[in-house]
Amino acid sequence: MPGTYEDETREVESSGSAARSGLPASRPAIALSYVILLVGVAIALVPFLYVVSTSLKETTSLFSYPPDWIPSPIYWGNFESLFADHPFVRWTFNTLFVAGAVTVLKLWFDTMAGYALAKMEFTGRRGVALLFLLSVAIPISALIIPLFFVVRYLGLLNTYWALILPPLANPLGIFMARSFIVGIPDNLEDSARLDGASEFTIYRKIVLPLIRPGLVVLGMFTFMLQYTSFIWPLIAVQDSERQVLAVGISGLQSAFLQDWGLLSAAMLLAAIPITLVFLLVQKAFVVNDLSGALKE
């Protein structure tokens, strides 16, 4: 199909086309797009406004009709109770610490493995790559029972290690790292090798700096998956002091008493750190396409 367009393509190129893909859109198309996006943004955000409003009300006042969107007077009791009666600060620290540790370790290990798979000719390369590729498709929640016994055997239940080590086995990041590294021209490394640089020096001084934009995206992705992980922390950690936010918050409600105000306060505060991290790196998200990972 593309072959037939060749001539026209050349013509268009010479006339200087926009860098953006697609075409300059017509006015009605742009207007329609804004309408669609505004609806999307409203659906994404309105539930959060509901949470903000609920967190600043006494739970008993929730049942008043009609509902007040803006609570008056503002009630801070939910936040006070969250800090006084629950280890919310610990949960936040635990979540950030575990997600941070997993992200740093995974970026390090995955780029090393990605470098080996992308650039080295070694015995068993196809086998290792196939093994990792197959295990991309192994669902973690199917492994919770054996993981529980492995981690118990290692004596790590109820520790940070129990939360940090098992996620390191997720091989998806290796393929993403590999896809970033494959694009680096070989002669860059070869000239460093002629200068006597070791493979590790090449990895650290040449490969890592060149793939930094991709690493920001991979890092954010890893951090987010870890920040939102639930089923494994739920099983691996029983001690509330060691628990992460998602599990801690889910424990705030019980079947008989639902303190919606308290729950909202917790959810509101839990949303802040990850949102800040995202705002810091969000520019990198648009330029990089993670789907490159599974291209051969």
Partner: peptide, 19 residues
């Protein structure tokens, strides 16, 4: 707009569920 659309994705699934 992108940031606003991404906000739900950043929440743990249990938080989305409670919301």
């Amino acid at each position: 707009i992108r940031v606003a659309l991404y906000l739900p994705t950043l929440q743990p699934a249990v938080v989305a569920a409670f919301i």
